[in-house]
Nucleic acid binder design. Structure first.
Length: 314
DNA sequence: CGTATTTGACCGGCGC
DNA sequence: GCGCCGGTCAAATACG
């Protein structure tokens, strides 16, 4: 009962934002890329000079509108086997391989900079196979009329590894926690969130790496079909400090600035087999890139471009 | 009082 | 066929 001493709270390290000023921790992403072992060797190791000032974590979320396109845009087709193999959700697993996942990053990719946060991410082709689709809306208690219609209708996933003190990162959207489960290879539980927007079916999982507690793995599943509450209140600003604009969660002062090491996982299967073609370090994710995506995919506006433009103007 | 979170149970896929 | 495990539900509880 109560509330304060639940063991689980331990997992939620105090929500403290020790993050320095964004500007102070900008750019270091490049440093992570190189740490990737042999990997790149000769392939296109896209090193991402991800500039937080141009694109924020939130943007990635928006970018998730179309993982495939992003993938394409980034030229992901190559990569570092190591990171990918572990992060790759390809098989019927889930990014849950926390241990490995983090290991890759935590071991050498992540600068031990306490203040700076680094994250990596990966997407999963819509062709997910876990097939855990069980029931989407039918009550489980009763006899569901339809059983497995949408058998494998899994949404694409997009995972982020973020070095952060807070488990639940503010991304501008409102989430409702609907479950928490202990993960097999981790002492930390995995939390399940769902976008609170009515028709939005986006879900996200948040778990902390047990090997490196400072790393939080956030996996987004699905695409928002609406603008983020934060966006509605202000674009540019939101990108820099989403939480400040979100009136909802009483979170800290600002979103811990992080640099992302984006990893687009392979579309899983296909021909990869532990080879070498998966992962990546995205190139600079610039406005143009997004615009391209936007254009190619004819994505709804969702304010993404506006955001980007706003950012540029800033 | 309304909303969000917690938490145990349940479901279904997968590997053995 | 059985057990394990991830994912989700929903009642109970906490909180503002």
């Amino acid at each position: 009962m109560s509330d304060d001493h639940k063991p689980r709270d331990l997992y939620y390290h105090d929500y403290q934002y020790n993050y320095p000023h964004p500007s102070s921790t900008s750019s270091s992403l490049n440093q992570t890329a190189p740490s990737v072992p042999e990997s790149s060797s000769s392939h296109d190791h896209l090193q991402v000079g991800f500039d937080p000032m141009q694109l924020s974590f939130t943007d990635y979320l928006h970018g998730s509108l179309d993982y495939n396109s992003l993938e394409r845009a980034f030229g992901l087709s190559c990569s570092s086997p190591e990171i990918f193999s572990s992060i790759d959700v390809g098989q019927n697993n889930k990014i849950g391989s926390t241990g490995n996942l983090v290991d890759s990053v935590g071991s050498g990719d992540i600068p031990a900079t306490p203040n700076s946060s680094v994250s990596s991410s990966s997407t999963e082709a819509a062709d997910d196979d876990s097939g855990k689709s069980k029931k989407d809306e039918q009550p489980k208690g009763n006899k569901p009329a339809k059983k497995k219609v949408d058998k494998r209708q899994r949404e694409p996933r997009f995972a982020f590894m973020t070095k952060s003190e807070v488990d639940h990162l503010e991304d501008g959207y409102r989430w409702r926690k609907y479950g928490q489960k202990a993960v097999k290879n981790s002492v930390y539980p995995r939390s399940y969130y769902r976008c609170t927007t009515q028709k939005c079916t986006v879900k996200k999982r948040v778990e902390r790496s047990f090997q490196d507690p400072s790393v939080v793995i956030t996996t987004y599943e699905g695409q928002h079909n609406h603008q983020s509450p934060a966006t509605l209140r202000g674009n540019a600003a939101r990108l820099l400090a989403p939480s400040m604009l979100t009136s909802s969660p009483p979170v800290g002062p600002s979103f811990p600035h992080q640099e992302l090491l984006l990893q687009m996982p392979s579309i899983k299967d296909n021909n990869r087999q532990g080879d070498q073609r998966n992962s990546i370090y995205p190139q600079n994710l610039t406005t143009s890139t997004l615009q391209q995506l936007h254009h190619h995919q004819q994505l709804p506006d969702y304010g993404l471009l506006q955001d980007m433009k706003a950012m540029q103007s800033v």
